[in-house]
């Protein structure tokens, strides 16, 4: 075995895991090689003094810094059993070396036992009767208007209700009137124009009403006059009918008188004619 062979097997030699035959060869090499013997003695001396020199702290301070932050970030998982085996061993080895992390871990372990004991705290004996008294009044109106009123009452009693209402109101006004894209951003001008238009329309309507009122009065007057005319005509018609009736009667009387005289004359004539005819018949034939 030469020096390079020994250096390759040095770790196993120190740990005592080298096979028997190789260990004998290494012992023989150490007997003859001064440099390898010095190397082995230096390593053994260094391990013995490692704890006293606090070499790891010095190395960490010059390389990655303290591992306490990383360790503390894993303490909760270590307590909950959420770490893997390898990571748990790393954290435990740090806790064994670091006093501050160790005391913190012990305090957290105690808290894990104490905090669940605070889960229930019993109030005094009058608590339950008072709760039952408070809820008895609510038994019959768990549904319906009182609940809705209570909802709005509790909403209005919220501390920031006024601020929220003012905020929403501002947003609403700004959204409606404040931007050029708002649907009613020119509502004021449109409303003014509409009001002016309405004023003109009202005047027009007023004059129309006056006109139609006059027309209606004229119509009423015409109607009155027509009624008077009809009544007058009706009266006249009655008088005319009376006169005509009287005339008719006169005509009938005259006709009757005429017919009477004419009949008498006709009768006399007929008698004359008869007498004449009778006389000619009785005269001597010549």
């Amino acid at each position: 075995m030469n020096c390079s062979d020994f250096e390759r097997r040095l770790e196993q030699y120190q740990a005592g895991t080298l096979p028997e035959a190789e260990r004998r060869e290494a012992d023989q090499h150490l007997c003859h090689c001064v440099s390898c013997r010095a190397l082995l003695e230096a390593l053994q001396l260094g391990e013995n003094r490692l704890g006293q020199l606090d070499l790891s702290q010095a190395v960490l301070s010059r390389t990655t810094g303290s591992a306490c932050g990383r360790c503390r970030s894993l303490l909760g998982d270590l307590l909950d059993g959420g770490l893997g085996r390898g990571e748990s061993e790393l954290v435990v080895s740090h806790l064994a070396a670091c006093a501050s992390c160790n005391s913190l871990f012990r305090a957290m372990s105690e808290l894990a036992e104490v905090l669940p004991q605070l889960r229930e705290m019993t109030p005094d004996s009058s608590f339950v009767p008072e709760v039952l008294r408070s809820t008895r009044a609510l038994r019959h109106d768990r549904l319906g208007l009182p609940r809705i009123l209570e909802f709005f009452r509790s909403l209005a009693q919220r501390p920031r209700f006024s601020w929220e209402a003012a905020y929403l109101g501002t947003l609403l006004v700004f959204g409606l009137f404040g931007t050029p894209f708002s649907p009613v951003h020119d509502a004021s001008s449109r409303l003014l124009a509409s009001l002016q238009n309405r004023e003109g329309l009202i005047k027009q309507a007023d004059s129309s009403i006056q006109y139609w009122r006059q027309e209606a009065q004229m119509a009423i007057g015409a109607s009155d006059r027509a009624r008077q005319t009809v009544s007058r005509m009706t009266a006249r018609s009655a008088e005319t009918a009376e006169l005509m009736l009287e005339q008719g009667r006169n005509y009938i009387r005259q006709s009757e008188a005429y017919l009477g005289s004419a009949g008498k004359a006709l009768q006399a004539r007929i008698v004359d004619v008869y007498r004449q005819a009778k006389g000619s018949k009785t005269a001597p034939k010549g």
Binding site: R72, S73, L75, G76, D77, L79, S103, L104, A107, M108, L111
Partner: peptide, 12 residues
């Protein structure tokens, strides 16, 4: 985790 550490540190 942070809350538990903060609580433990406060107790200490």
């Amino acid at each position: 985790n942070r809350a538990r550490i903060e609580l433990a540190e406060t107790i200490l």
